[in-house]
């Protein structure tokens, strides 16, 4: 009896390990939402946490995580315009970007962001 239970536990553990392995093959694994919430305190001075938006600052709430990660990565590589965003994104590690994507992606906005946002087109400045 203990043998088959041990066998089942081992099988479940192996399945868990393989699932983790699968998720880690993505460039950025699921983000640390609590870390994202802390880092977001910098963002919400300009990007409202409710998703409401005004002026030239687009909403970033409720974006699919992949799209969010790609945009921040483009700012980090300076292939997407806006010096403020380039400076802010420039200091983030992959884990931090994933964390932000997880946090903002988890919020429900009053005006959900579109993936083709109104930020300046990706020209080098």
């Amino acid at each position: 009896m203990s043998g088959s239970r041990a066998g089942r536990c081992a099988a479940i553990a192996a399945l868990g390990m393989s699932l983790m392995a699968v998720s880690n093959t993505r460039v950025m694994a699921a983000g640390d939402r609590a870390l994202g919430e802390y880092l977001s305190s910098e963002c919400v001075a300009c990007h409202q946490v409710t998703g409401q938006h005004a002026g030239g600052i687009p909403p970033i709430v409720g974006l699919p995580e992949d799209s969010f990660i790609q945009m921040i990565d483009e700012y980090r590589k300076k292939t997407r315009a806006n010096p403020i965003m380039q400076t802010i994104a420039g200091k983030f590690s992959n884990d931090e970007i994933a964390a932000l994507a997880a946090y903002f992606g988890s919020l429900k906005g009053s005006s959900p962001a579109r993936t083709n946002t109104q930020t300046p087109r990706g020209r080098r400045q």
Binding site: A45, Q48, A54, G56, I57
Partner: peptide, 8 residues
């Protein structure tokens, strides 16, 4: 941007 920041 300036106006958007102020609202936010």
């Amino acid at each position: 941007e300036n106006m958007g920041w102020y609202s936010a």
